[in-house]
């Protein structure tokens, strides 16, 4: 049971990191459906840098403390380079461009012999759950900090109204490129950690559905505040498991069906969430309400 919960928390950590990487561009109004591409880049870069040159398919043999940051820098560099042309596109076009980028990355990686081609490759050093948790907390804290800065303010302004942001001196292009690049770095970090935790990377696992799910965590969690991705990732990592648990608890034929169809229920929840909270679970207004209630409650309690 303990192992099962830890396994779930590992997935939650990775999903949270991915979600924050997609959240940063989303907070500045850009939908990135290419998460799988950056995960692939981060995971393979870390695995290859870390693998000793003597083993198959071979690598550089760097220790993990170097391979992970280098993988992050690599993902950031690729993110920066492609952000310049990709961010020229808008709306649907950008969704498609990021999506096409991820497919190109995956198509290339499964043909590169030096990273094991279609079979994938091992990532030798191991990151345990504690390490993963600490890094996840750091990522959440970093994004929370970033959203509270003037740069974060610029990002949110660009999301709301690009042309007005420009008239108040915001460099819209630089803001979008920065958000996309930092996001790419974070998703790449998630990929590197995935590799080093499971000790194996395989491009087939980083597919379109993964990109779609990560974008869903972000949009359902809400892009207005830095809490959105955390809530979104947690919600959607736990919901299928909760349904599974519920199915076991109910038992019998119905319980079995519930477990079998839990992702159908998950999809229904997504559609219903969009009906009930179209701007995401966590919105500014919600936070405002929660905090004013607390403020009002405090003096009342003091009396």
């Amino acid at each position: 049971m303990g192992g099962e919960i830890e396994g779930l928390l590992v997935i939650l950590c990775l999903n949270t990191i991915y979600a924050y990487g997609i959240f940063l561009p989303a907070a500045s109004g850009q939908l990135n459906l290419g998460a799988a591409g950056f995960i692939t880049l981060g995971a393979y870069a870390a695995a290859w840098l870390n693998m000793s040159p003597d083993s198959e398919p071979g690598g550089l043999g760097l220790p993990m403390v170097l391979s992970i940051p280098s993988a992050v820098l690599f993902a950031a560099a690729v993110g920066f380079v492609i952000s310049v042309p990709i961010l020229r596109t808008r709306g649907v076009y950008m969704v498609l461009a990021t999506f096409a980028f991820a497919e190109v990355v995956s198509g290339l990686v499964i043909n590169l012999e030096f990273v094991g081609a279609a079979a994938g490759m091992p990532a030798e050093d191991h990151v345990d759950f504690t390490g993963l948790l600490i890094i996840t907390i750091c990522v959440v804290a970093f994004c929370y900090y970033l959203m509270s800065t003037r740069f974060g303010l610029a990002m949110r302004s660009v999301h709301d109204d690009e042309s007005v942001a420009t008239l108040f001196g915001v460099n819209v292009r630089a803001t979008r490129v920065a958000a996309f690049t930092i996001g790419a770095a974070i998703v790449g970090l998630g990929g590197a950690l995935y590799g080093h935790h499971f000790n194996y990377v395989e491009a087939q696992g980083f597919n379109v559905l993964l990109s779609i799910f990560i974008l869903l965590y972000v949009l359902l969690g809400g892009t207005q505040t830095a809490w959105g991705p955390l809530v979104g990732a947690a919600f959607f990592t736990f919901i299928p498991e909760t349904i599974r648990w519920l199915g076991r608890w109910v038992g019998g034929e119905f319980g079995k069906e519930l477990i079998e169809y839990r992702l159908v229920a998950f999809g229904i929840i997504i559609v219903m969430m969009m009906v009930l909270r179209p701007e995401g679970v966590v919105t500014r207004t919600l936070l405002e309400r929660v905090f004013t209630l607390r403020r009002r409650a405090a003096p009342a309690a003091a009396e």
Binding site: Y145, T149, R150
Partner: peptide
Amino acid sequence: AQQLFPLGL
């Protein structure tokens, strides 16, 4: 430095 100053924190 100004861009990274945590206004909200």
